[in-house]
Design a protein around this nucleic acid. Sequence first.
DNA 1: ACACTATTTGCATCGGAGAG
DNA 2: CTCTCCGATGCAAATAGTGT
Length: 301
Amino acid sequence: MGAPKQKWTSEEEAALKAGVVKHGVGKWRTILKDPEFNCVLYLRSNVDLKDKWRNLSVMANGWTSREKSKLAIKRVHYQTPKQDDNSMDTTLVAPSDEDIADVKPLHVSRDMLQITGPKRSIVRLDNLIMEAISSLNEHGGSNKTTIASFIEDQYWAPTDFKKLLSAKLKYLTSSGKLIKVKRRYRIAPTRAYSDRGRYPSMLMLEGRHKASMKVDKDETNIPTKSQIDYELAKIRSMTAQEAAAVAARAVAEAEAAIAEAEEAAKEAEAAEADAEAAQAFAEAAIKTMKGRTTPKMMIHT
DNA sequence: ACACTATTTGCATCGGAGAG
DNA sequence: CTCTCCGATGCAAATAGTGT
């Protein structure tokens, strides 16, 4: 074929993984534009990134090249619910059995479950939770136990699944994707800018995006174009060793971020446990009160 | 000026070719 | 057989053009 094969170096692989951790799967252009990874990946195109990620995913799942061609990254066609992994639109349109949710190398995030079925291998817990709530379709939402049972019935869950689930529920609630009422979770209405399935990204820097920029500036730290140009110029002048060092640093930072997130999840879980204990105590107290009062005097809660 | 439609542009995926 | 490259394709957003 045209260009000679350019084998992926470990630095490039690391940068790609770090990029996916930072920006998510499918954000190839964004990863490429990120000054943190561009120094290593500047020789690659967005298609290259996608291809390599496909390969990594296949390897991580132990599929052969034959299976790969049929199964590798078949999933809901990207555009239909075009979105970030965290977007909740997936939950509204539950994937069919034919679909394969995000296929990712296992080490990128522990926030996924292995699935015993022949087609699915790894899906994000976020999506499973949304799928569970949506499928259960219980009036007033579903509680944690029901959601856990639903997921465990269908998928292989890791030993610390309950912990992960609590943390994730907490996170989804705090981020507004779920609404928690009396220990039941239900899906929150779709947010404005996710209805097109696109989250703000570096692409917004491009001229034609500027006019329509709706991003809350307090939430994003978007560098100016000149800053990016400067970074890119700096990066391009680096030697291979320097570039590799920058990539390694990027990976280390990404790993640190993951560790931090996991720590935060643990704290969230502990907080939730406390809250649940308090609620249980309150309910017990109310029951006691009810037992002591005549029906006429019962306080309506 | 505004609304609507057509065209262009950018990005992502799929699936196959072929070098190594 | 694996891994990379590449063409075809589809979708969404931006932009240009046109009518009222």
